[in-house]
Amino acid sequence: MAVSLKKGGNVSLSKEAPGLSAITIGLGWDPRATDGKEFDLDASAFTLKADGKVRADGDFIFYNNKVSSDGSVVHNGDNRTGEGAGDDETLDIDLSKVPAEVDKVAIAVTIDEADARGQSFGQVGGAFIRVMNKDGGAEIARYDLSEDYSTETAVIFGEIYRNGADWKFRAVGQGFAGGLAPLARNFGVNV
């Protein structure tokens, strides 16, 4: 039975799924119900040190850099419309490969060309993030972002972080204005 989290809540993945070594992060949202330019949402991940910054630009995993420099995080590809049930984009994290200096992995979703298309998370519904055991695909934790977003164009959906020897997942749900570039800069990426 997967743990359903509220904003700010956390769960120990290691306790929920003993022996866990690799996870799949699934992210989803409703496709645009109205007519107009599609909502093209993009998932990205940042492998961060304890100070909340990347070690190098290769720690920013997104549609143009699908594998982290250490190989621990893999982006499984871009979905342009949010069409279809279930996960719209997925990332795999091999926890056993995450280097010791990486303290957490932040998972964010941004809206492509949000400004040009006049789009924001205030228009996107049904967003969720879920964590699955990569081995077998069983869902461990889930967070439905029922928050009422407004003009934000980037949202940190959740983060995977170390707690001693354990790995935990936190439902973050924090929005930012400006989209992917300011978000990446916030994590110390040179864009």
Binding site: G118, Q119, S120, F121, G122, Q123, D148, Y149, S150
Partner: peptide, 8 residues
């Protein structure tokens, strides 16, 4: 307000 903006 701009498109998508919400408030209580």
């Amino acid at each position: 307000f701009t498109t998508g903006q919400k408030t209580q």
